[in-house]
Amino acid sequence: MKQDKIIQIALTIVALSAISSLVLITVFVFKEGLPIILRVGAKDFFLSGDWYPGEGKFGIMNMIIGSLAVTAGAIIIGAVFGLGCAVVLTQFAPRQLVVILKPAIEVLAGIPSVVYGFIGVVVLVPLVREYLGGPGLSILTSSIVLGIMVLPTITSISVDVIQAVPKSYRDGAIALGATRWQTTHMVILKAAKSGILAAFILGMGRAIGETMAVIMVAGNALELPHSILDPVRTLTSNIALEMGYAAGEHRQALFATGVTLFVIIMILNTIALTISRRSAGKAAKK
């Protein structure tokens, strides 16, 4: 039993150190970032689009809007295709196809983001510029690239929650004379609704935090976008673009950008957790 104890203690230390690094990061980011928000004033920081670090103007509104716009676009694309994949994989595709398709989608998750960005620049950007106008580097382009990047997240979680729907639901619906599609959208997707929603929100968290690919295809202009063909700068790209050299107040303002991002992602994760917990609770009751 001595060995048990030792392993228990060792594992506890490992677990605690993982969590403590999270705590340390949080404390550090907030310590660096909060003072400048207070000094500039929350209103000037969050509700102004004037980002001129050289002149002490730190307004990140345009970037918040940029991040949200790109993420929303990505989640629309990711949701449509991801859920589509999940439904096909669980309901319609023959087993042999699933064996090929599912790993193929999961491979998408392993491709480095810089590769996505590069393909975006070389293939997607010229297409958008030629056929839709604008500079090509735009909300639309980044949404498409990010949408593909969040596909594996959304698909694999959706597949899991759809498979978790009790088989009796499906059998019951079929026995009542429902077609396959009717069973899928009236029974199975309804039953898996909250899990699928959680999948979207997790995908959203990934999209809003993505940096490299977005820097390459979003254009990073500071102007407030007027259409989905306009370039934007997101919160993450702002940090990555300027971190390398920023000093003093500018550096703090980038940390404050990080604080903003942190809070947004925390809110998203909390929503996802609440939803999936609620669905777990429901399932337990039944």
Binding site: G49, V122, P135, I215, M216, G219, N220, A221
Partner: peptide, 26 residues
Amino acid sequence: KIVSRKALVQESNGAVKELVRLDPAA
């Protein structure tokens, strides 16, 4: 003079080159 906020920002010479090479208005 302040640089226009509409300006696209690219991280390397290569990226600038790639954009200008393909965009007639750049």
